[in-house]
């Protein structure tokens, strides 16, 4: 499937990626050629094949309900771009 400029813009928005206007045609071309590669899958009939989500046929292990973590706020916030009063700061969220 060949992607158009508008498709690239939509995907980039969904993925929250700023893409410069000038780069869009190249993205469209590259993504389209990757999709063409991917679409080779359609040559195989997979009717009735069980989708495989995991390499191993295992089940989820359950953790006991115990508090094991301690407060490491200072340590974790030392690497944060913007904090104040223990909070992470972001541009105003409008609700």
């Amino acid at each position: 499937m060949a992607l158009e400029r508008k498709d690239v813009e939509n995907i980039a928005h969904l993925a929250r990626l700023a893409i410069s206007e000038a780069d869009i045609p190249e993205y469209a071309r590259n993504l389209s050629s990757i999709l063409a590669l991917v679409e080779q899958m359609s040559a195989v009939d997979t009717t009735g094949v069980h989708p495989m989500a995991h390499p191993l046929d295992a089940t989820q292990r359950l953790r006991e309900d115990v508090v094991t973590e301690t407060d490491q706020r200072e340590h974790f916030q030392a690497i944060a771009p913007a904090v104040e009063a223990g909070l992470y700061l972001v541009p105003k969220v409008i609700e």
Binding site: A82, E84, L87, L89, V90, K92, V93, E95
Partner: peptide, 12 residues
């Protein structure tokens, strides 16, 4: 999200 004003920012 805490919307008190942190210099026009929101605190998380």
């Amino acid at each position: 999200s805490l919307h008190e004003d942190f210099h026009g920012m929101t605190g998380i």
